[in-house]
């Protein structure tokens, strides 16, 4: 194996890992803070991708104008869902999971009805490739990595340095204490949905020019992000990032040497066996 080849595969791994990391970030955030496994995350991701299609391809907006519009719009849909659907049953964890499942497949089938069966394309914003150390990466993938990195940093800054972020972390420990710190639980939950769904939408908008859009892309993405956050340890953000890149590396090497379909089978088997041996994931704590 040549060194440039190795660099190329690593670069691919980073670009794949960045997408998975973005996908998993919102899901693990919602789980870590509210203990909700938000299946509808996949639907929000799908809506994000279609937002890119409608805003850019149909309305002809500039991609970078469409990006914040789409994220905020879908984040707000998340807030509406939280207020209207999840708040009344906040204390019933089983019902919440079923509700999220219902929402995901409701939105997916709505997607089929509204968006149609035919896959939709979104035109590439960046053409051409970047070169470094002999490896090439298409600009659009480089942008995904860059924006993904920015999103992680922004989320970290938000959680660690702002009053709201502090309130959210306090809520994860103990909702009562959080209330005493002057941030109401309602605000924390709305904020959680805003950010979680916004992140899912961001992932969707970013991949829209790279992938082909179909309504089922959401369910597939949820399974992948579940594997990612399961491998990383549920609720752990660093865990999600690490495992996203581990899966990215396996996928990148596997596709180069073994072929795409067998690689995905191997990833499944790897994660399942890993979880059976160490069910708390890389960073997780045992919760019995």
């Amino acid at each position: 194996m040549e060194i440039t080849e190795l660099i190329q595969i690593t670069v691919n791994a980073i670009s794949i890992g960045a997408i998975y990391a973005l996908l998993a970030l919102g899901l693990t955030l919602l789980f870590g803070i509210m203990d909700i496994l938000f299946f509808a995350h996949g639907a929000m991701y799908m809506l994000g991708a279609y937002a890119a299609y409608y805003l850019c391809t149909k309305l002809g907006l500039n991609y970078f104008v469409a990006l914040p519009i789409g994220v905020i719009l879908i984040g707000l849909i998340g807030v509406v869902m939280e207020k209207g659907l999840f708040r009344p049953i906040r204390n019933d964890h089983v019902a919440i999971i079923f509700l999220a499942i219902g929402l995901n497949w409701f939105l997916e089938s709505t997607g089929f009805v509204v968006f149609g069966l035919r896959p939709k394309p979104v035109a590439s914003v960046f053409t051409g490739q970047a070169h470094f150390f002999g490896a090439t990466i298409s600009w659009e993938r480089a942008v995904v990595v860059l924006i993904g990195l920015l999103a992680v940093l922004a989320l970290y800054f938000f959680l660690m340095k702002t009053r709201w972020g502090l309130g959210m972390r306090a809520f994860a420990e103990d909702p009562l204490t959080a209330e005493l710190q002057g941030i109401s639980n309602d605000t924390v939950c709305s904020l959680g949905f805003l950010i979680g769904c916004g992140l899912a939408a961001l992932a969707g908008l970013l991949v829209a020019p790279i992938f082909i859009l179909t309504p089922t892309m959401g369910s597939h993405a949820v399974l992948i992000s579940l594997l990612v956050i399961g491998l990383g340890g549920l609720g752990s953000i660093p865990g999600a990032l690490i495992s996203a890149f581990i899966i990215g590396i396996i996928e990148s090497f596997g596709t180069s040497y073994l072929g795409a379909d067998i690689t995905w089978g191997m990833i499944f088997i790897f994660v399942i066996i890993f979880l059976i041996i160490r069910p708390t994931g890389i960073m997780g704590v045992v919760r019995e």
Binding site: F31, L37, G265, I272, L275
Partner: peptide
């Protein structure tokens, strides 16, 4: 599958069983 995973919180169990199902599907296809 049950012995190592059933002692854990339901969510992990959900991930493992879903992943198990899709792994099998992959095996059937491949």
């Amino acid at each position: 599958i049950g012995y190592p995973t059933l002692r854990l919180k339901g969510i992990y169990f959900a991930i493992i069983t879903w992943g198990f199902g899709d792994t099998l599907r992959f095996i059937y296809m491949r």
